[in-house]
Nucleic acid binder design. Structure first.
Length: 423
DNA sequence: TCTGGGGTCCTAGGACCC
DNA sequence: TCTGGGGTCCTAGGACCC
């Protein structure tokens, strides 16, 4: 992000309020639904029958019942029996995210996607914004609502971290600032777990050290926190003082480090063949995503979550980076056989990392012909699936099974065009 | 806990090299 | 070998984010 020395740096963090719920609600209105799900006790959540039953997003009325993100639907329903439950629609969310990006890009080209529902935008070069950042943010916020039908919070500061914390203050549909000069009054009085990176494991550790507010953390002796929490302690202390760490990367175009998919299975898998079916369907998805990004994977890992929730990871380096489904699946099979002790399996995952660019593909002379044929086969399959849908072509082994031939979602909004119509 | 799924980064220990 | 130390790579696990 570039600014001239005359301007002050102005970063805004734009965060969609209860994103999944807002987006599903706006879509429902568009489709003629008479109820705005944002105005009743409603959540977006998975299906308990397939053991994916947790709260992904909640409306403000649902929040008043004490319903929290990531809690089970069972527990949410106990708090509010009339709760409206909406199934997630990831494709819609990708499209909404892309639509927001398009709108923001009209205001400033300097933007960075931080998650599906959050963007950082650098407005330092924009004169109107220099004069009155808060007024500018209000206009932007209202424009998003007018154009796209959902509300956002906007946090304003001179760096991303502070802008993000500001955006989190009071919701929904609000603009907040947190400039350096406001740290002592606005940030330090907050409970320490309001700070970015202080999660449920770190909170009790900090409390045990007598650190309860962000201010306590900001003032704590450097050496003391270093002894107790090592490097992470120093990072947190910096955050509490509003100093940017490399937690929020400065390069918006940074390539992804890994591509992975995992799935919780509707029942516990106890047999190797069934595990292999799931692993193959995940491998299909991750390899397709890898090829879509024109990358090769050097490392393959699998994860197994057992019925008792214990987790095992196992990984291996490939002899040669690849994007071939069959080569990846071969490694996945081997990893599973080495790692699985026969315990009932709840979740399986496949992940590719150590990614390199496709352009310096080292061709092996020995199996050039077979690998070239496989490359063409993979490309043909990808093209068919793009054109006719993911299930248009699949391996025969799935044809009489109850397992989906391809499993997992893509996390890549670039694969989804922004919605053409208004939401 | 009747506990998802996509990511990132850090740490610690072991292998191996000089 | 009852063996030192520094560097790098690999692996497993754990924390955090949304």
């Amino acid at each position: 992000m570039i600014t001239t020395s005359l301007d002050r740096t102005i970063i805004m963090h734009v965060d969609v309020n209860s994103a999944y719920l807002s987006w599903s609600a706006a879509q429902a209105l568009e489709n003629g639904c008479k109820i705005d799900y944002r105005k009743i006790a409603a959540i977006v959540g998975g299906n308990p029958k397939t053991r994916q039953g947790i709260v992904l997003a909640k409306s403000i009325p649902a929040k008043r019942y004490g319903i929290k993100t990531a809690e089970t639907l069972y527990s949410a329903l106990k708090k509010c029996p009339q709760l409206k439950i909406i199934a997630p629609d990831y494709q819609l969310y990708m499209q909404c995210s892309a639509a927001l990006k398009q709108l923001l890009a009209r205001y400033s080209p300097q933007l960075q996607r931080f998650s599906i529902d959050e963007y950082f935008v650098d407005f330092s070069g924009i004169k109107d914004c220099q004069k009155d950042p808060v007024g500018f943010a209000h206009k932007l916020k209202d424009d998003i609502y007018q154009q796209l039908g959902f509300t956002v919070n906007i946090g304003i500061s001179s760096n991303k971290l502070l802008a993000k914390i500001a955006g989190d203050f009071e919701k929904p549909n609000k603009v907040h600032t947190l400039f350096k000069s406001e740290i002592a009054t606005k940030l330090w009085p907050l409970p320490v777990d309001k700070l970015y990176m202080v999660g449920r494991h770190t909170l009790p550790k900090l409390q045990a050290l007598g650190i309860n507010t962000v201010g306590d953390l900001a003032m704590v002796d450097k050496n003391f926190i270093n002894t107790k929490l090592k490097k992470f302690g120093l990072v947190l202390r910096n955050l509490a003082n509003g100093k940017v760490d490399n937690l929020i990367n400065d390069d918006p175009d940074r390539p992804v480090k890994g591509i992975g998919n995992s799935t919780t299975i509707a029942f516990d898998i106890t047999n190797r063949n069934e595990a292999m079916m799931v692993l193959l369907s995940l491998t299909e998805m991750v390899s397709m995503r890898l090829r879509a990004k024109a990358r090769l994977a050097g490392t393959v890992s699998i994860s197994i979550k057992s019925a008792d929730f214990s987790k095992v990871l196992h990984q291996k380096q490939l002899n040669q980076p690849t994007d071939d489904t069959s080569v990846i699946y071969h490694a996945v099979r081997q990893l599973f056989c080495e790692a699985w002790q026969g315990q009932p399996v709840r979740l399986l995952g496949v992940r590719l990392s150590n990614l390199t660019d496709c352009s310096h593909y080292q061709l092996s002379l020995l199996d050039y012909q077979t690998s070239e044929k496989r490359r063409q086969l993979n490309q043909t399959i990808d093209a068919l699936r793009r054109r006719f849908g993911q299930k248009s072509i699949f391996r025969a082994t799935f044809s009489h099974s109850n397992f989906a031939p391809i499993k997992g979602n893509t996390a890549d909004i670039d694969n989804f065009p922004a919605l053409k119509s208004q939401l």
